[in-house]
Amino acid sequence: MRQEQLSLSAAVSTSYIGQLERGEKNPTIKILEKIAIALEVTM
């Protein structure tokens, strides 16, 4: 899945997804939950 697709599905910005991937940000539990749902995986 591309960053753009994930950001749309998880309702977070593309730049935030990039920052998470690079380890520049630490996500909240709520953001982790949104990403997990978008990826169809469990936390």
Score class of each variant (00 low, 15 high):
Met1Glu: 12
Met1Thr: 15
Arg2Asn: 08
Arg2Trp: 06
Gln3Ser: 07
Glu4Met: 11
Gln5Lys: 14
Gln5Arg: 13
Leu6Gln: 04
Leu6Ala: 05
Leu6Thr: 04
Ser7Gln: 10
Ser7Lys: 09
Leu8Glu: 15
Leu8Met: 12
Ser9Gly: 13
Ser9Asp: 12
Ser9Phe: 13
Ala10Pro: 04
Ala10Arg: 01
Ala11Phe: 08
Ala11Gly: 10
Ala11Thr: 09
Val12Ser: 05
Val12Glu: 04
Val12Pro: 04
Val12Phe: 02
Val12Ala: 06
Ser15Met: 08
Tyr16Phe: 06
Tyr16Asn: 04
Tyr16Pro: 04
Ile17Met: 06
Ile17Arg: 04
Ile17His: 06
Gly18Tyr: 02
Gly18Glu: 02
Gly18Lys: 02
Leu20Glu: 02
Leu20Cys: 02
Glu21Asp: 02
Arg22Asn: 01
Arg22Thr: 01
Gly23Gln: 03
Lys25Tyr: 04
Asn26Trp: 05
Asn26His: 06
Asn26Asp: 03
Asn26Ile: 06
Asn26Gln: 05
Asn26Ala: 06
Ile29Gly: 11
Lys30Asn: 11
Ile31Met: 07
Leu32Ile: 09
Leu32Ala: 13
Glu33Gly: 13
Glu33Met: 11
Ile35Trp: 06
Ile35Arg: 07
Ala36Asp: 00
Ala36Gln: 01
Ile37Gln: 09
Ala38Ile: 00
Ala38Met: 01
Ala38Ser: 02
Ala38Gly: 00
Leu39Ile: 02
Glu40Ser: 14
Glu40Leu: 14
Val41Gly: 07
Val41Asp: 06
Thr42Phe: 15
Met43Ser: 11
Met43Phe: 13
Met43Trp: 11
Met43Asn: 12
